[in-house]
Design a protein around this nucleic acid. Sequence first.
RNA 1: GGGGGAAUUCCAGAGUGGCCAAAUGGGCCAGACUGUAAAUCUGGUGGCUCUGCCUUCGCAGGUUCGAAUCCUGCUUCCCCCA
Length: 407
Amino acid sequence: MSFPPVEEQLALLTRGVEKIVPAEELRRKLEQSLRSGRPLRVKYGIDPTGIDVHLGHTVPLRKIRQFQELGHQAVIIIGNYTALVGDPSGRDQTRARLTQEQVENNARDYLNQVGKVVDLSRAEVVHNGDWFSAMSFLDVLELCSKVTVAQLLTREDFAKRYAAEQAIFLHECLYPVMQAWDSVKVRADVELGGTEQLYSFMLARDLQRDQNMPQQIGMMTPILVGLDGVRRMGKSLGNYIGIGESAYDMMKKFMQVPDAVMRMYFELLTDIPLPEVDRLLAGHPKDAKLTLARHVISGYHPSPEADEAADRWQREISQKELPAEIPEVVVPGTALEQGRIPAARLLQVTGLSPSSSEARRLISQGGVSLGEDKVRVETHDTPIDVTPGLLLWVGKKRVVRLSIGPN
RNA sequence: GGGGGAAUUCCAGAGUGGCCAAAUGGGCCAGACUGUAAAUCUGGUGGCUCUGCCUUCGCAGGUUCGAAUCCUGCUUCCCCCA
């Protein structure tokens, strides 16, 4: 096995990495591997707790991919056992635990998605249940004897919860221990993860030393902020771009992102050289954002699709042309009286408003309009002449084409 | 095992007998402004046959002319002591 020069590897690998502990050791490990021709074993663990992999997850995954491209060995750990515990990291509450069955379904799905970023054909994929399920209680006790409670409580998340008098369950305390033990089992040289993983990464080093093994390096990638530009990207916050989403959906979401986060997105989500990024950001923000979006999207969709999504956004959103596809909604003929229907009622039967009260609100606030010219509907009881093909708008984005059905 | 505290509308969190569909903030929706970005500003945010009416404040009963607010039981959660 041969590798590119160490300096070159370092330049690529340290981009967009927030913290490397211990910082000096990465170079040493790379030098060693270059000399011996032995690839580094790069570990990344994921707990199959949800289903949607989003761009936030891709930050460490992309890093794995870079390691792979340099010739190193990716080791993906499916935390089917740790998922039963729930990672307390960064949490101010105990996570809900999952059943075995859920975990297994999720795991399969996860790999499908992860495969879009990491080259799974060259990666080792292991389940940590393989070793944890084989451990006896005595083994667990033995493992626990390496960790002190005081140590656990130095973690910020636990310390905070402890101070706030919130519950910390014993099984949660075991989580970092398990994660660290994974590193021992796979003989990790490098572990990737978010900054909140620091404690587990360090614990892994302790356990590895205890087993007379080389100690791993922790590489921590920053938390990617979500579409709101403030909070971390996450499913529960609803501010994420999933990698399974359509090109156009991703496009729309990218264009909503606050300008201020663009640099971070470029750095963490693309390979565009940083000087080039600076040049882009010096230009019009909208163009920079389009470039960003196209680059990222083309990682998950064929690039003609990414281009098409960008064009479509320009046409429909930027230039306010009518969308190419307007969903058609059937108005039941029985709801009409002499071809007409009160405006508020129309919003309800078309499903654009869940309730009549909501419909009235929308209308009174000027959010409802008709036709290509978007003529505003003034009052909730305005009779609307429903003709097939009539456009009905709610707000700026939602529009449907009406047709009349038999009932 | 003993003691204490809490459950409110999407979330956080006020409200302790009528002025409460319930303050305030967040989120969300709509409008203005824009690059349909962000920020900002305005309005809204249970339902309905809508100047009024109906159903909500953990659950079930009760007191009262009247209860989110008082009483009883139940459920759930948290904390402390051991």
